[in-house]
Amino acid sequence: MLTRRDTLALGLGATAVATLPMGAFAQTADEVMATYTGGATPAEGGVTITAPEIAENGNTVPIAVSAAGAVEIALFATGNPTPPLGRFAFGEASGAPTIATRVRLGRTQDVVAIAKMADGSFAMARVEVKVTIGGCGG
């Protein structure tokens, strides 16, 4: 027979299970970014992300990034099932360390840009994009 206490415990268990996947994703994004920087903590600043504050359609969210002195820029969507968005390496004929593209965002989340500098250091920027309709097929 279910006592009042049992019912309460059941409810708590269900809540824990329900919140688990989101926590797992966030950790994955952090891990992915740490792998990219080789564990180094990127400096804040020096990287500019241009993204809409509110994206009505998560299927195509325009993102532009520029980072003076960068040799490569990596983009991450912290709340997507697969956080990496892409890595953009600038060659000798590049005019400026800047790129613009369109990405899928499954839900409201932070977009992170990490720039790898010529001296091997890293810089980053983070912006939140609110998504009205998600872009991951659901």
Partner: peptide, 15 residues
Amino acid sequence: GRNVIDCALEPSISA
């Protein structure tokens, strides 16, 4: 013949 950009793209890039 000189590289301008080299991009590694992931599934989260839009169609």
